[in-house]
Design a protein around this nucleic acid. Structure first.
Length: 500
DNA sequence: CGTCCTTTGAAGCGG
DNA sequence: CCGCTTCAAAGGACG
């Protein structure tokens, strides 16, 4: 995680942040919701606890809260969302056309069994959408839906709104453009898809609908958000579609990315900021301000997304995209889709030879089940399981149930265990379940270093973010700094000081 | 027009 | 096993 190794000092920022948040205006609106929220939250927590920390100390989550000053505002805010969702379940969640994110729900056993107890409808990541949030779209598990393989009303809503009927598994396969062969792996149950979005405007046929993650090579990825276009190439690029090149499959979004997608609009609205960099800083802070439970929701969504992605593109590897960027001629006119910003340093490009060398074990089994991982995965190398013919263990049994999700007991949803929040929350002594699994957090540390480097690394001359201590205070001293401060809850005073 | 910036997390590679 | 790098989204800003 973000936690800085030694940056403990920065961590303090967490507290600051929280406090700061309180000050700022956002809370006003939320206040009214307080009453509600407390209760909700409690429920939420309990449900989460049940699901994920079942054998664990139930109080863990609570404990965390207690220790850490809670970023009330945010929390409340979220609750607000939650409430909203529950309130308007029928309409709210699906009503808006989400930009995209055609998320499918995996019938993950884990999820089904543990993730949302029927009674805990509060946990929904989905937030209301005033505008739209992508997330909601992916939430298969709506507040009330709880991931049932075939939620009774969900489809209904969808169909009403979108006029689309619940997609069948085939649709999905079509939608995702599964590789021949891989289709079979998808379990039938996966078939429902909460989303209509994709069907949307473009009116693509079921079969023609691309997975959001797929981007045509020619499309400019950066601007084509897969989101709006649904991960896939957007709108009008139909022409480009015809290009023979195989579509680029994008990485599944991680928890934070999902969160960003969801909250971005909100932040923009509140702060009137437009720069993504600034917005992202705010979002990063807010992210840290979220409670574990709240983050857990996103982690879980991310996990599902990964699973789905994995099922859909078993042979895909994140590495594929690395190459995509550089193989084409890094940056040249081969803009194709992805070259994205090439970081200097071209090292290995040779790797392009291995088309399919997915990781998988980690995602599939989770950290707590490393014993199931293949050797290379344990060493953080490419997964050989898939290479070997897909014998992935449980992969795609047709039910899907087998898929990764370890039973609740063993495979707690990743998030919880997360180490994830080392950064700000020292407080939250992660009560997590012992074995925790695929926690989101494991990998984390890496970017600390990176973060630090960042400022130094490309001082691009312009004003932007001189040196951002992202954590606690440093803020961008750009025109938007005030807005950021506001958004994040920092007072100008603080801001000023830090900038100095 | 292309890339940077900025965030966290996931994945992968090299040492 | 650890550290580092890249990519994912996004959209204004910069060169």
């Amino acid at each position: 995680m973000p936690q800085l190794s030694s940056g403990g000092g920065d961590d303090m920022g967490a507290n600051d942040e929280m406090i700061a948040f309180k000050d700022e205006g956002e809370q006003e609106e939320k206040i009214q919701e307080n009453a509600f929220t407390e209760r909700d939250l409690a429920d939420l927590k309990s449900s989460l606890v049940n699901e994920s920390e079942i054998s664990q100390s139930p109080g863990a989550a609570v404990a965390r809260r207690g220790q850490q000053p809670e970023p009330r505002c945010y929390v409340e805010k979220h609750r607000e969302h939650l409430n909203g969702v529950t309130k308007q379940q029928d309409g709210g969640m699906y009503k808006t056309s989400y930009p995209g994110y055609p998320f499918l729900m995996l019938p993950d056993p884990y999820l089904q069994s543990s993730s949302m107890p029927p009674s805990s409808n509060k946990v929904s990541v989905v937030q209301q959408s005033h505008g739209m949030h992508p997330l909601s779209s992916l939430l298969p598990y709506g507040p009330n839906e709880h991931f049932s393989p075939s939620p009774p009303h969900l489809p209904t809503d969808m169909s009403q709104k979108t006029g689309v009927h619940r997609p069948q598994s085939q649709d999905i396969s079509g939608f995702y453009s599964l590789p021949p062969g891989s289709v079979g792996q998808i379990s039938p149950s996966m078939g429902w898809f909460p989303h209509s979005l994709m069907l949307g405007p473009s009116g693509m046929h079921p079969t023609g609908i691309p997975h959001p993650a797929i981007v045509p090579p020619s499309a400019k990825q950066e601007h084509d958000h897969y989101d709006r276009g649904m991960y896939a190439k957007p709108q009008g690029e139909a022409k480009r579609e015809k290009e023979p090149k195989k579509p680029v499959i994008k990485k599944p979004l991680n928890a934070f990315m999902l969160y960003m997608k969801e909250m971005r609009a909100k932040v923009i609205a509140e702060c009137t900021l437009k720069e993504s960099a600034a917005i992202n800083q705010i979002l990063g802070r807010r992210w840290h301000a979220l409670t574990r439970d709240e983050q857990a929701k996103y982690y879980e969504l991310a996990r599902k997304e990964r699973q789905l992605h994995m099922q859909l593109y078993p042979s895909w590897s994140a590495r594929d995209n690395y190459e995509a960027g550089r193989s084409g001629g890094a940056g040249g006119n081969t803009k194709d889709w992805g070259k994205k910003k090439r970081r200097k340093r071209e090292k290995q490009q040779d790797s392009n030879t291995d088309p399919g060398s997915p990781k998988k074990c980690r995602a599939r089994f989770g950290l707590n089940q490393q014993t199931d991982w293949c050797g290379p995965c344990r060493r953080k190398k490419k997964c050989i399981r898939y290479l070997q013919g897909g014998g992935c263990p449980s992969p795609a049994s047709s039910d899907g149930s087998a898929l990764d999700s370890p039973p609740p007991t063993s495979a707690p949803p990743s998030p919880f265990s997360s180490p994830a929040r080392p950064r700000q929350a020292p407080p939250p002594p992660p009560p997590r379940s012992p074995p925790l699994p695929s926690s989101p957090s494991d990998p984390a540390p890496a970017h600390h270093a990176r973060t630090e480097l960042t400022p130094a690394k490309r001082p691009r001359g312009h004003t932007h973010v001189p040196h951002v201590h992202t954590h606690a205070h440093g803020y961008v001293h750009s025109s938007s700094s005030a807005a950021i401060a506001k958004a994040t809850g920092l007072s100008l005073r603080v801001l000023t000081e830090s900038q100095i």
